[in-house]
Design a protein around this nucleic acid. Structure first.
Length: 264
DNA sequence: ATGCCTAACACCGTTAGA
């Protein structure tokens, strides 16, 4: 079973780019982030035509996550428990969608779009840290189920210096703050395995390159899209592939797909 | 030191991303 995560930076603006990759790779499960549309505007039919079941937790203009699966999705949950942590005092951002991928060996999968948190020292950064704390609390509950579990998405955290081409350039950034990195470590310490680090771990496994200043051409990348696995899922991990070439195509997202292969 | 680029929405600029 291959499980993908991809921040697509607007599913409608980039539909042909996204569908092209799905036709080539046909992952069994995919977590999409930054779909940037409400549920009714998500192009579900296009994915259903490729054989996917679709669950969407959308939002107008910003954020929004979706889950795609070749087998039916069950026990769908929209939103992260705990409704505090609003950045703007309004309704909570659409950043979390969880479901059980059915089959002979079911896997619980969550699509995650963590807040960016910039600039540091503002309410946005505080929101990011509160969101990480809420994710930690929920992950603790999910791990108690002792199931195969995959938390996949754009975590907006650079875990280690090796996860940036130029770590010094990120020192003042919310993605590389000690508090952000510490909260990510705390997640792993609950008993979650960073799939890329377990399967490969080579420095330079970047998943994001900014649109600006020729970041892609200069390989000024960072690794911020992650798949975190429970022990029951990590035991089945066969490999992780970062689809780096996708960044060089026409109309690319600034993120590329990351795919984890689990046995059976 | 700042912007570089891209998208959405509504306006012809602003907000957000990372």
């Amino acid at each position: 079973m291959r499980i993908a995560t991809w921040n697509v930076n607007s599913v409608n603006a980039r539909l042909e780019t996204v569908l092209g990759w799905f036709r080539e790779e046909a992952p069994d499960v995919a977590c999409l982030q930054e779909i940037k549309c409400v549920d009714e505007k998500f192009p579900a039919e296009a994915f259903e035509a490729l054989g996917y079941n679709v669950a969407v937790h959308g939002q107008k203009t910003y954020n929004g996550v979706a889950l795609l699966s070749k087998t039916p999705l069950e026990d769908v949950r929209k939103g992260l428990p705990g409704d505090d942590g609003h950045a703007d005092g309004g309704e909570d951002h659409a950043r979390y969608l969880e479901a059980v991928v059915s089959g002979p060996r079911p896997v619980r999968v969550a699509a995650i779009y963590l807040p960016n948190g910039n600039p540091v020292g503002t309410e946005k950064f505080a929101y990011k840290l509160r969101w990480l704390a809420r994710l930690n609390a929920h992950a603790r509950e999910l791990l108690a189920l002792e199931e195969p579990l995959v938390l996949a998405g754009d975590f907006n955290v650079i875990p280690e210096p090796d996860d940036a081409d130029n770590p010094a350039a990120w020192m003042g950034d919310a993605l590389f703050q000690p508090e952000s990195r510490g909260a990510f470590r705390a997640l792993k310490w609950l008993g979650l395995t960073d799939a890329y680090m377990a399967a490969d771990g080579a420095p330079g496994g970047y998943t994001f390159w900014d649109y600006q200043a020729g970041a892609w051409q200069r390989n000024h990348g960072i690794r911020i899209d992650h798949l975190l696995l429970s022990a029951q899922a990590a035991d089945r991990l066969e490999g992780v592939t970062i689809h780096r070439d996708v960044r060089g195509r026409d109309k690319p997202s600034d993120h590329v797909p990351v795919v984890a292969a689990l046995s059976i």
